[in-house]
Structures are given as structure tokens and as C-alpha cells.
């Protein structure tokens, strides 16, 4: 099971783990989606089944951000990726 703790989608815990936005992560980094800062664009993520609490791995940052989510891969342009706040997870 993915050990994802799904919150209400809007609460952020800034006290622990360093927060970042999706477009800041390095290739190969794994993170947990915390919240979407631009609610006008949130439906685009929802339409792919990507929610807060989802664990993602960044596969590429250019020409667009490519993520692995579960066993699938998704691409987002950098502007959209910039609206996603994530919590970095310790890598291997």
C-alpha cells in the first residue's frame, strides 16, 4: 500500500519536511502532493486522478514536467507544475 495520509486537501503542515513546488524538484526526487495553490487549475489534476496525498516521482523537468504517479506517467507544463505544493520524501 502506498503509505499516503490523505488530508482534507487544504491544510498544510509547514513545520516539518521542507516544502517545495513541483517544478522545483530535481529529476528522480520523490514527494507527496500537499496542496494546489491555484484552485482555478485544480480540476486539471483531478481530471487525471491526482489528489493531495498522492506520492509522485519526478522523471523529467524539461521540456515539461513528467511524473510517475502510481504505475502511470503524466506530463504537465511548468506553469501548472508551479501550482502544486509538495513535501519532499527522503529518497533511497
Amino acid at each position: 500500500m502506498e503509505e499516503s495520509q490523505i488530508g482534507t486537501g487544504c491544510t498544510v503542515d509547514y513545520t516539518h519536511n521542507p516544502s517545495a513546488v513541483l517544478s522545483d524538484l530535481a529529476k528522480g526526487e520523490t514527494a507527496l502532493i500537499e496542496r494546489f495553490s491555484d484552485l482555478a487549475h485544480v480540476r486539471k489534476f483531478l481530471s487525471l486522478g491526482i489528489l493531495p496525498g498522492t506520492s509522485i516521482t519526478v522523471l523529467k523537468q524539461s521540456p515539461a514536467v513528467v511524473l510517475r504517479v502510481g504505475y502511470s506517467e503524466f506530463a504537465f507544463d511548468r506553469r501548472l507544475a508551479g501550482t502544486v505544493q509538495v513535501r519532499r520524501m527522503p529518497g533511497k
Partner: peptide
């Protein structure tokens, strides 16, 4: 508004996801 709609849908989707995760567990 687009923001209110986004917030609404997000909250609803998270609740359904929690329901589903609880079943899949």
C-alpha cells in the same frame, strides 16, 4: 467562481478517495 468550483471539487474528490482507500485497505 473557478476557484470556488476547484475547491469544491477537490474536497469532494478527496472524500471519495478516502472512502475508496478505506475499502481497498
Amino acid at each position: 467562481t473557478a476557484e470556488e468550483l476547484g475547491d469544491f471539487e477537490l474536497t469532494v474528490r478527496v472524500a471519495r478517495q478516502e472512502h475508496g482507500d478505506q475499502l481497498l485497505g
